[in-house]
Design a protein around this nucleic acid. Structure first.
Lengths: 348, 348
DNA sequence: TATTAGCACTCTATTATCGTGAGTGCTAAT
DNA sequence: ATTAGCACTCACGATAATAGAGTGCTAATA
């Protein structure tokens, strides 16, 4: 059954009011605040209809209406018009300067805080995952004895490191030789390929380099997997400002969830493939048992390639219009910064 | 006025009970649970005395006694005996494995979570601050055009990086040359000294290297200052398990405080100079308006040098005995790992 | 047929009242 | 110095009463 124009307007009015005030909306309030040209009795009928269709509900018999998750979904898909973004963009620009990004880590942190500040929700940023074979440089630093620190520098400017322990001591000089060799090869090949070629080339001899290669390879694999560190959460306490989290138990479980960054990652990464904004309302996000929470995410790019995700987690009753704009703006901002400052496509 | 033996025992009993149960302790309960050989009436007198001396208080007329901050202070300084650490150490060992420390960042994170898990409070670790002139290696990676990524490797194995933009393009080859030069100099001098010598040596000529040196120097300064990233907080949600934070407003302010890492740093770093455990009870910590919170901190070392701080933030009513042992144990554990795996004193 | 006024009914949230019990402080006896 | 006894205090929980917002239904109206 389709909604006629008037019903749409009523639904929108109810959701708008509820988002703004947080209290269930009754027919009288609605009739008074908006000018529908009909009485509250008619509005009651309409609202009952909308409830039957699943867009609205009410907490108890004598309370006003609140949107269901389904109602929010319809609201976002059909009722939000993003016509007035111009005025908001100014708001953003005024607050934009903080994003200066001395290095990738900082940029991610700042972006998450930026999101939080502007959306009054928790800001979440998933750092770029380095596709295999995107290393620019691999460096070995001998710390002492057989301990070697391997440093991976990716095209995006991301730097990761791992400490390994070799079977036998090795000179810094030899490490440098190997590093130069690797860098040259990296121009044309992925780490996996290099490893393959090395295995073929030097069967038994040069055991030491072979070992080092193995360790390097394994370390790089570990880097890939250790995604957990890549989730930046900013301004989580923002979310507590919302009255719906006055319930202590809810808060607790929410913060527990924030600490489980792996799950967060799964949740956010679902949108990484596609471009544009995605909104997951309440029960729509399955990875995460967050009651009463919505997630607004977008992907960001470096050059033409989508490389990461960023967004916002907040109460289901959030200012979707604004939040969507903020997330969109931030994604574009981060994309621009990354594209400008790091990496130009595949070119080296 | 000094406390006689019996009063001490009563004070200890009250605090022990209150820490264990969280509810104010009345004279009857005390007389029943402990065997003082006196009646509840006498205990009432004693408790009134202790209250007058400032060690105890009660929330309202007809409630039992609870410790004041002062009472806790006395409890910790004079009443806690750490005789039975043997039994607890076993507990720790069973849970110890998780600390494997692939790199410094991981070690810090794991340590903070370790602290949280064992103390049921929030675990906080301040990463080693690199004293000037402790760099092992400085690497330059040309990303594209005039963008260069500077990577600092410290003796502790800590790796930091910063992206800079030069006035003119520079070849990777030249960067390597400079890196080799710096590394050699770093064997004997601090960055500040090297800069000085460079300025004297090559007045006008070699402008490019001079510029690079300036940028490198400035970047290293910034690294020093950007301490904020160095605070690792683990298991903050642990703290919510405590009933005293059922109050939403309290929780909120606490989490806000956690996000202000700079203040946290100030608070924790007060203990960095001295060795051993420090306890700040409730109002005793001034940097931080955390009502009802206590902080237990210790410093950790690499070799002989104190290089960082770690500890726990929890409700004033915490299991001091256990927590102190946990913090002590963790500090030693981290010290051992750092001493073993990285840096051997000043030797290179 | 769609809208509206009117009204009975429902349910929450607020406030008031009261009893209960743990605990204190004081006094007088030991 | 210790203790028994007792009056007094005060938070806490349960219960009851009230107010008010809002609904759903019915019958009247345009």
């Amino acid at each position: 059954m389709e909604l006629d124009e008037r019903n749409k307007r009523v639904l929108q009015a109810v959701i708008d009011s509820y988002i703004a005030s947080g209290i269930p909306i009754g027919s009288n309030v609605l009739a008074k605040r908006y000018d529908f040209g009909v009485s509250s009795a008619t509005l009651r009928n309409i609202m009952a209809e909308l409830e039957e269709m699943g867009y609205l509900t009410h907490p108890h018999t004598s309370a006003g209406r609140i949107p269901t998750d389904w109602g929010y979904r319809y609201y976002i898909d059909s009722l939000i018009s993003v016509q007035n973004e111009a005025e908001d963009i100014e708001d953003h620009l005024r607050q934009a300067p903080p994003l200066h990004s001395g290095n990738l880590h900082e940029l991610m942190m700042e972006a998450s805080q930026f999101l939080a500040a502007l959306s009054h929700c928790a800001g979440v940023v998933v750092a770029p995952s380095e596709p295999e074979g995107k290393y620019k440089h691999i460096e070995f630093v001998r710390l002492r004895g057989r301990q070697v620190l391997i440093i991976f520098v990716a095209n995006t400017g991301s730097v990761q490191n791992k400490l390994i322990e070799l079977d036998e001591s090795i000179q810094q000089h030899d490490l440098n030789t190997f590093s130069v060799y690797l860098d040259e090869e990296l121009e044309r090949h992925t780490l996996t390929e290099i490893r393959q070629r090395l295995i073929e080339k030097m069967k038994e001899e040069k055991r030491l380099f072979m070992r080092l290669m193995e360790q390097t390879y394994r370390a790089s694999q570990e880097m890939q997997e250790r995604d957990v560190e890549k989730v930046y959460i900013g301004g989580a306490s923002q979310i507590l400002e919302n009255p719906e989290f006055a319930n202590v138990e809810k808060m607790r479980s929410l913060f527990k969830a924030f600490e489980d960054k792996y799950k967060l990652l799964r949740l956010l990464d679902r949108s990484v493939a596609a471009e544009g904004i995605k909104v997951f309302i309440g029960s729509e996000n399955h990875y995460f048992e967050m009651q009463g929470c919505s997630v607004v995410v977008s992907s960001y790019k470096a050059g033409e390639n989508i490389i990461g995700t960023l967004g916002v987690i907040g109460p289901t009753r959030m200012q979707y219009k604004q939040v969507i704009q903020v997330v969109d703006y931030t994604a574009k901002l981060v994309s621009r910064l990354l594209s400008e400052r790091f990496q130009k496509g595949i070119e080296r």
